[in-house]
Simulated assay, not measured.
Amino acid sequence: MSEEEVIRQSQAACDALSAEDDGLKREVLTHAGNRWSLGIVHTLGSAGKLRHAEIGRRLEGVTQRMLTRSLRQLERDGLIVRFDHGEVPPRVDYELTPLGRSFLARMVPLWTWLLENADGFRAARVRFDGENRSGEA
């Protein structure tokens, strides 16, 4: 399929969305596409079922609060499932759902495209920053 056909198909899909569906799309993409949520989905996709602390260790820089918040949002949207084993001390595991695996499978081509075009993004930023600096003088 050509880029033009993809764009037309995308526009048709957007035009067919109800206001409720459009709001849902925006909400899910906003939080599911953030740094930590993508990291969680990727981590669970590659490692399988993990405990909260193990996910945190694999995501360098994430705070406990942000990890918990991201996990709850992903669970709310059905991308991950939480298993509470009802033990003392508490033991809770997280795992991708089929919906979460589907989301991850669709993100991989985007990540690949971003990496393939990283030099182009960097060059565009240098060009933009240079043009804007010279215009400020």
Rank of each mutant, 00 (worst) to 15 (best):
F83G: 02
R35L: 09
F103P: 01
Q73G: 05
I55Y: 01
Q64D: 15
T97S: 07
K25P: 01
D77F: 11
Q9N: 14
N34R: 08
S102I: 05
Q64V: 06
E20A: 10
L74V: 04
L96T: 04
R76W: 04
G135H: 11
G23L: 05
V81P: 03
E95V: 04
V108G: 04
T97R: 04
R91I: 00
S2C: 10
K49Y: 03
R26F: 02
G78F: 12
D93C: 00
V28N: 02
R82S: 05
G120F: 09
R91H: 01
L38S: 05
R133S: 06
A124D: 15
A12F: 07
K49T: 07
P109E: 04
F128I: 07
P109N: 06
L67W: 03
S10D: 08
L79W: 02
R125W: 09
G120D: 10
L59M: 01
E87T: 15
R65A: 10
R58M: 01
V41L: 14
G33P: 06
L79P: 00
K25M: 12
A13L: 08
N132H: 15
A12E: 14
A19R: 11
A47F: 03
V41G: 04
D119Y: 10
L17C: 03
E27P: 05
G130R: 15
T68F: 07
R125C: 06
T112Y: 09
L74A: 03
A19N: 08
D119I: 10
F83D: 09
H85P: 06
R101T: 09
Q11C: 06
